[in-house]
């Protein structure tokens, strides 16, 4: 009888805690990209803030592979209890268009919040003959097929960005060549060494070279000028309505209770205002751009549609889609 009573008490306690406020154990954030990369660094800084706010350990787990499909897929299929979250990135809106089997789409998640974005910029060597975008595009038009861009893999985000911009300027996709690279870090020496004409990648990735005057950014594909680079004109100012940026955010698996999503969104919002986080982001020139659950979902759905158009331009869209 005593035992039964004890069991009942224990059960009641356990049940009580289960109903108690989320979170009550370690939260894992799946990062689909490698340790030490931009996404990893942003999400680790965010995890440290969330840990302070939520009072439970927040651990980042890198599950890389398949151009982001492995980590994104793992996170989408996790149990929707708010203890396994995913750091979703821009590629969520390209992977499935590329025909990657098992790649999730933005519809497979309850999105929590956007944390950061990094708009695309086109950079050339400071001593290059092109002083502005108009000059560069005029040269491409006069010398079709001679310009060489690099910045990421073929059909990667920055390839799509420059395709969209070239299209807006009336240039054909084949007027310039895309040299595939494993990322911006591998492409920058190519530009500095004079082996290719221009780099297209996030402006934060070119910061060091822009600051010390080795690269010149011709255009920034964002709605407004960047406070960090006030001298770089936006595409809109130059007459092309093109906005292209990579995004990073936090998402939960489909079916996660709304209360948990809202609680997390609130925590992310507070973290985005925390002095330590703001300081970290500023020093690394990662722009903080918070968007709540509804806005982040809407943004991803818009990017998804934009990417389809851009991939059609480059001829990357897999048949049947």
């Amino acid at each position: 009888m005593k035992k039964l009573l004890l069991a009942a008490v224990v059960w009641a306690l356990l049940a009580g805690t289960a109903l108690a406020a989320y979170p009550e154990k370690t939260i894992v954030i799946v990062c689909p990209w490698g340790a030490g990369g931009g996404t990893d660094r942003v999400i680790r800084a965010m995890a440290a803030e969330l840990e302070k706010l939520l009072g439970q350990p927040v651990v980042v787990e890198n599950r890389t592979g398949g151009d982001g499909a492995v980590g994104h897929g793992y996170g989408a299929k996790a149990r929707p209890d708010g203890y396994t979250l995913t750091c979703t990135t821009f590629e969520l809106a390209t992977m499935h268009w590329m025909g990657i089997p098992s790649a999730p789409t933005f519809e497979d998640y309850e999105h929590v919040a956007q944390i950061n974005d990094d708009p695309a910029a086109i950079g050339v060597k400071t001593d290059a003959e092109w002083k502005d975008l108009a000059g560069f595009f005029a040269w491409i038009k006069a010398n079709p097929g001679r310009a060489q861009f690099s910045g990421t893999a073929k059909a990667g985000i920055w390839d799509l960005a420059r395709l969209t911009l070239m299209d807006a300027a009336g240039l054909k996709p084949e007027d310039a060549l895309w040299i595939p690279s494993s990322g911006a870090a591998a492409a920058i020496p190519e530009v500095l060494g004079g082996h290719i004409s221009a780099i297209a990648c996030g402006i934060a990735e070119q910061k060091a070279q822009l600051d010390n005057g080795e690269l010149r950014a011709l255009v920034l594909m964002s709605a407004e000028r960047s406070p960090a680079f006030p001298g770089v004109p936006t595409a809109r100012e130059l007459g092309y309505d093109v906005v292209y940026a990579t995004v990073r955010g936090l998402s939960a698996p489909k079916g996660t209770p709304k209360e948990i999503v809202d609680l997390l969104a609130d925590a992310v919002k507070k973290s985005c205002e925390s002095p330590t986080f703001v300081d970290f982001m500023q020093k690394n020139s990662f722009a903080i751009s918070y968007r709540g659950p509804a806005e982040y979902t809407e943004l991803l759905s818009r990017i998804d549609a934009d990417n389809k158009t851009a991939m059609e331009l480059g001829g990357y869209l897999k048949a049947g889609q």
Binding site: T64, G65, G66, D67, A69, V70, I100, P101, A103
Partner: peptide, 8 residues
């Protein structure tokens, strides 16, 4: 062979 874990 359709195994995304091998894509890298």
């Amino acid at each position: 062979f359709g195994v995304m874990d091998l894509a890298d």
